[in-house]
C-alpha cells in the first residue's frame, strides 16, 4: 500500500524555515523529504527554498542538505550520487529541489546532461511560476497573462505574452526512466509518485505545481485550494511518463470555470474576456493532445 497521512514518516526534515505563511513550495519539500526519509541528501540551488532554509545559523534541514550554484542542481546531484557510491554507500537518495527558474531557465542544461547520463538522482521542480524570492520576475514557466514585475499589466500589453513552457514533456523527450507532474493540492498523488520514483534506478523528474500566495496574489490559506483548482479547471494535469509512455492519472469529470480560477488571483485580475478565451482555447488544445497521446485509465 502506498504512503498516506497515517503511514507517513512522523519525523520532520524541513522545519523552522522562513518561507512566507502558506508557502506551497515548502509544503512540497517537506512532504517529499518525509517520504524519502533521513538518508536523503538534498541539493538546492539559489531559489526560495534555499533562501528560507539556510539562514545561518538557522538551518532548517534535518537531513544533509547543500546549496548548489543556480545552474548546477543536477550536476551537483550527479556528484553527490557518485561520491557516495564511491564510498560504498547505497542506502541514500540524492534529491534536488529547484524552482521553476532554476529548472526551466537556468538549470536546464545541467538537468539535460544528468538525464543523458542517466544518473541515479531524483530532481523535483517546485513550480511557483515566477522567480518569487527575488521579487516576482517572469520565468519561462510563468503562464500566459500573468502579471509579474518584468511583465507588468498595462494598457497595451497585459502581463506575460508567452505561454508556459512544457517542462514535463521536455524532460520526457529525453527518454527519461520516470517523469511525473503533481500538485500540492493533491498530496496523496504526489507522495505516491515520490515513493515510486525513489525505487526506480536512473534519473527521475517530478514537476509539482506549488502556489505562492505572495506572487500569485492569493490569501495565505488558499494555497492548497488553488493548487487543486488549477488541476480541476484543466490548466494543469497529473500525469506520468514511464517506459516511453505517457499516462494521465486524473481526468476531471468536467472542468471547473477557468475565469473563476484566474480572477481569484491578483496576477490575473487585469485579464480581458478575450484573454480568458485565449487561455481556454489553449487548454482545450492541450487536452485534445493529451487525449490523443496519453494513456488514459
Amino acid at each position: 500500500m502506498s504512503v498516506n497521512a497515517k503511514t507517513l514518516n512522523e519525523d520532520e526534515f524541513f522545519y523552522g524555515h522562513k518561507a512566507c505563511a502558506g508557502c506551497g513550495g515548502s509544503l512540497a519539500v517537506r512532504i517529499a523529504l518525509k517520504v524519502l526519509g533521513e538518508r536523503s541528501v538534498a541539493v538546492l540551488p539559489a531559489g526560495c527554498m534555499s533562501a528560507v532554509g539556510f539562514n545561518f545559523p538557522q538551518l532548517c534541514f534535518g537531513n544533509n542538505a547543500i546549496i548548489s550554484t543556480f545552474a548546477g542542481t543536477a550536476s551537483m546531484l550527479t556528484g553527490v550520487e557518485a561520491g557516495l557510491r564511491a564510498q560504498g554507500i547505497t542506502d541514500f537518495h540524492a534529491v534536488g529541489f529547484a524552482g521553476d527558474g532554476g529548472t526551466a531557465d537556468i538549470g536546464l542544461q545541467a538537468l539535460s546532461g544528468a538525464i543523458d547520463r542517466n544518473d541515479d538522482i531524483l530532481y523535483i521542480c517546485y513550480d511557483n511560476e515566477a522567480y518569487m524570492n527575488t521579487g516576482i520576475q517572469k520565468s519561462s514557466l510563468t503562464p500566459f497573462g500573468a502579471k509579474t514585475t518584468t511583465t507588468p499589466a498595462g494598457k497595451n500589453i497585459r502581463g506575460n505574452l508567452r505561454p508556459k513552457k512544457n517542462m514535463f514533456e521536455i524532460v520526457a523527450a529525453h527518454g527519461i526512466p520516470y517523469a511525473a507532474t503533481a500538485s500540492v493540492g493533491y498530496l496523496n498523488d504526489f507522495m505516491q509518485k515520490v515513493e515510486k520514483a525513489a525505487k526506480i534506478k536512473g534519473t527521475k523528474y517530478i514537476h509539482i505545481i506549488a502556489p505562492c500566495p505572495t506572487g500569485w496574489g492569493i490569501a495565505t490559506d488558499e494555497t492548497v485550494e488553488i493548487a487543486k483548482e488549477v488541476v480541476d479547471c484543466g490548466l494543469w494535469y497529473l500525469a506520468e511518463f514511464e517506459n516511453g509512455e505517457y499516462k494521465l492519472n486524473y481526468q476531471p469529470k468536467e472542468f471547473t470555470d477557468i475565469e473563476s480560477y484566474l480572477k481569484k488571483q491578483s496576477r490575473f485580475r487585469h485579464l480581458t474576456d478575450e484573454d480568458i478565451e485565449t487561455i481556454k482555447r489553449s487548454r482545450d488544445a492541450k487536452w485534445d493532445a493529451i487525449h490523443n497521446n496519453f494513456k488514459i485509465n
Partner: peptide
Amino acid sequence: AYESGYLVTKNAGWR
C-alpha cells in the same frame, strides 16, 4: 558546513 537542523529563532512572531 554546519550541524543540520540547527534552529536559533522561532517563527511565532509572524502570526
